[in-house]
């Protein structure tokens, strides 16, 4: 148990028994409380209704159809409760999944990660905490692919601003970005300001604009 973190009650949905047990073990190791671990989307909805968890962690591909049942369930849950933190695990990068998920609720407290990320256990756990704390996290690979092919209005961003936006999309704070890029926090703030301006995002509450910037990415993906 790590006392500096509040106890997070988790509903876990994953159809692979081995991985489900592994994930449960991992989460418990870091002080999360697994209130339910289920194997399909219907059971996920039931478990959330019953336990009202602090976090939902779900595989996207689940029985019975093995396509996007987990995503459908997650989107439905967030429609009912837009503040419910949800992290979805995907087998492959599918931008429409990420966009759908981010469009649900207010675009906050939501994460889209490749399944393989779970093996970097500490990063994974910190990602979950970011989402619980209200952050938005998109898998670095999704961001990287978007950056490879982005056109206007993102084409107007400088390479450095791209880098910063990528880190924003991954849910990092200005301070964390500054550490990672080895620049001052003020410099990061300036970059973020430029990004928001270049993406024509209205100057309102700060987190929301950051989320909107990420969404701009993903929406750009619609026409690819």
């Amino acid at each position: 148990m790590q006392p500096d973190h509040p106890t997070v009650r988790v509903v876990l949905a994953e159809d692979g028994v081995l991985l489900r047990e592994g994930l449960a073990g991992l989460l418990e190791r870091f002080g999360f409380v697994i209130v339910a671990a289920v194997g399909d989307a219907a059971a996920l909805a039931d478990a959330v209704a019953e336990h009202e968890p602090d976090l939902v962690l779900t595989d996207i591909r689940m029985p019975p159809g093995f396509t996007d049942e987990g995503l459908r369930a997650a989107v439905a849950l967030r429609r009912a409760n837009p503040d419910l933190p949800v992290v979805a695990l995907s087998q492959y990068v599918e931008r429409s999944y990420a966009a759908e998920l981010l469009d649900s609720g207010h675009g906050e407290r939501v994460g889209y990660l490749l399944k393989d990320r779970v093996v970097d256990v500490e990063d994974f756990v910190s990602t979950l905490r970011q989402v619980v704390a209200g952050g938005t996290v998109v898998d670095p690979q999704v961001v990287r692919q978007l950056l490879n092919h982005r056109r206007d209005p993102l084409a107007r961003l400088s390479p450095r601003e791209h880098e910063v936006l990528a880190l924003v999309a991954q849910g990092h704070s200005n301070a964390a970005i500054a550490r990672q890029l080895v620049v001052s926090e003020a410099a990061v703030g300036k970059h973020v300001g430029n990004i928001l301006a270049k993406l024509d995002l209205p100057p309102t509450e700060d987190t929301n604009r950051r989320v909107l910037a990420v969404l701009a990415y993903l929406r750009g993906g619609a026409d690819r």
């Binding site: 692979g16 991985l19 592994g22 994930l23 073990g25 991992l26 087998q91 393989d116 500490e122």
Partner: peptide, 21 residues
């Protein structure tokens, strides 16, 4: 491969990641 080997490998790697902690 997807439902078998890949799934098991992710689970194995996850456990190794936990073990190193």
């Amino acid at each position: 491969l997807h439902d078998g080997a890949q799934e098991r490998l992710v689970s194995l790697t996850l456990r190794l990641g936990l073990a190193r902690l």
